[in-house]
Amino acid sequence: MIEWFTYTQVAIAAAAGLLCVIIGLLGRSPSDYTLGATLLVEVLLLVQLAVSLAAPAFGNNPTGSLLEFYMYLISAILLPPLAGVWGLIERNRWSTVILGMVCLAVAVMVYRMNEIWFFQLA
């Protein structure tokens, strides 16, 4: 895990989450902007996966449980596509709120992954 990348990712996921929740509560159905924000969150998760897979080879090892780390990462990777598919099928305001809730959940999960990698003692 790379610290600055992880914090950037948490910030972007939280911002995307708030944006989608607010736009959703204003009554908009999922648009290119809200689906795009969710897509960005997903792409960053995939980059995080690549970084995490490569990191141990460069001597960047987690202090905590690798199994727990990957349970979080894989769960997080699953969420945005599910919310996105829902957003494409059910076109109403609540689908936009759901995109936001999922992005917020991803932000919390990535923050927790950061703790596992850098602070948790196995």
């Binding site: 769960s75 969420l79 609540w94 759901i98 809730m101």
Partner: peptide, 18 residues
């Protein structure tokens, strides 16, 4: 809004199970 509730439950179920 019930759908939002279901999604939050789903995330919690996933997190708790994992």
């Amino acid at each position: 809004v019930g759908r939002v509730l279901i999604v939050v439950y789903g995330i919690l179920a996933l997190a708790a199970a994992a």
